[in-house]
């Protein structure tokens, strides 16, 4: 039996799952999934079928960065370009 991690534990851990990212940032799952598929969020995956692990600090900062750019009116291709620079 595995139990859900508390927010306190999630906020202190180095790596988090996409579900935990949703809980941390309040973003929609489909949005984060889309960002991941578009290569906008960094993640690690040991083997193809294993769960993706996201470096917490870096990913949360990246999500806030994307949200900020969206508020300024940037489109997704523009954001992707800006993130790559």
């Amino acid at each position: 039996m595995s139990r859900q991690r508390s927010l306190e534990k999630i906020a202190a851990s180095e790596y988090v799952s996409i579900g935990e990212l949703v809980r941390l940032t309040g973003s929609r799952y489909s949005t984060l999934k889309f960002y991941t598929e578009e290569g906008m969020l960094p993640f690690e995956q040991e083997e193809e079928n294993l769960t993706r692990r996201f470096p917490r600090e870096k990913t949360v900062a990246r999500i806030h960065e994307i949200q900020g750019m969206k508020k300024q009116g940037c489109s997704i291709p523009e954001i992707k370009k800006l993130l790559q620079e």
Partner: peptide, 12 residues
């Protein structure tokens, strides 16, 4: 969204 992500994503 937390529930959706846990259920739809692969993993335990």
């Amino acid at each position: 969204e937390g529930t959706r992500s846990e259920v739809l994503e692969e993993g335990e």
